[in-house]
């Protein structure tokens, strides 16, 4: 596969390490009242869609960016590629 890196352009997916569902960005708040249940869902439960899937790819043999790739799991077509840090900030992850 080819992943069109937002900074580096098209790169072979072999340079990347797949890191799973991009929901892993949304790590729960440890102090919320049902934190344990939220963490269980966060760590284990997956939508696992047959279709568009937002997922993390780590450019391990490249610039070490984490990317959020939206890819169709039935055709492997890639719809969008974003820097995960940008996505995380937009999704309101604060330090």
């Amino acid at each position: 596969m080819i992943i069109n890196h937002p900074l580096l352009g098209p790169r072979d997916s072999a340079e990347f390490t797949y890191m799973g569902d991009a929901k892993q960005i949304d790590r729960p708040d440890w102090q919320s009242p049902n934190a344990l249940a939220q963490f269980i869902d966060y760590a284990y439960m997956r939508d696992n869609p047959a279709g568009a899937h937002r997922e993390l790819w780590y450019h391990e043999q490249g610039d070490r960016s984490f990317l959020v790739v939206t890819r169709d799991t039935t055709t492997h077509e890639i719809f969008s590629v974003e820097l995960a840090s940008d996505v995380a900030r937009i999704q309101g992850r604060i330090a």
Binding site: M19, E60, S65, F66, D86, R93, A95
Partner: peptide, 19 residues
């Protein structure tokens, strides 16, 4: 060594991008 570095980059970029 490799997986820990990857894990730390994940934490830095995906979990706490503003640090």
């Amino acid at each position: 060594a490799v997986s820990v570095f990857r894990h730390m980059e994940f934490a830095r970029q995906c979990l706490w991008p503003n640090l």
